[in-house]
Amino acid sequence: MFYFSPMSPDSVLSAPYVLEYTYRRSVGPVLGRFLAGLRDGRILGVATRAGRVLVPPQEYDPETGEAVGEMVEVSTRGEVASWAWMSEPRPGQPLERPFAWALVKLDGADTALLHVVDAGSPARMRTGMRVAARFRDERKGTIQDLVCFEPVAEGA
């Protein structure tokens, strides 16, 4: 229950309120294996019939609608396909200090994964830079098992 209080003298009553949904989602066999992979510290994709590797995996080929084939492990390293500098992180985002949102194309994958890069400063960011996944020590089988990506030296 909440109570209204005046917003301003000539205005109307207002009250703060919060909506919370405690959703629990079943993830299906494809995402279920991807998340189990994260729990093991590995990143899995899925191969389409045309041989493209989708990371994160999809249940179907987005280009043809065909069922996908085998799960394949890809590297935990890759390159940044695009990035945006979050100088003021918002509540609930992966890092509390400034970071980069990034689309990361992992080695062995043909599509990019959305996550963040802990680079300290936008000066350290550029498209095409190499990054490596940093996993949480205690993993639960969620996307948050990946803390972030971090810059690695060229060719490393």
């Binding site: 909440f2 209204f4 917003m7 109307v12 009553l13 207002s14 009250a15 703060p16 309120y17 919060v18 909506l19 919370e20 949904y21 405690t22 959703y23 629990r24 989602r25 079943s26 993830v27 066999p29 995402l31 279920g32 294996r33 998340l35 189990a36 729990r39 093991d40 609930g92 089988g141 969620t142």
Partner: peptide, 29 residues
């Protein structure tokens, strides 16, 4: 390969300010 993950908890929390509108303000007062 380890077990497949079956489900995840994905709570949603959104904060709002409700406004009562002119008539409801009169009503509540």
């Amino acid at each position: 390969m380890s077990d497949v993950v079956k489900g995840i908890k994905v709570p949603v929390r959104l904060a709002y300010t409700a406004i009562a509108g002119r008539d409801m303000t009169r009503f509540y007062q």
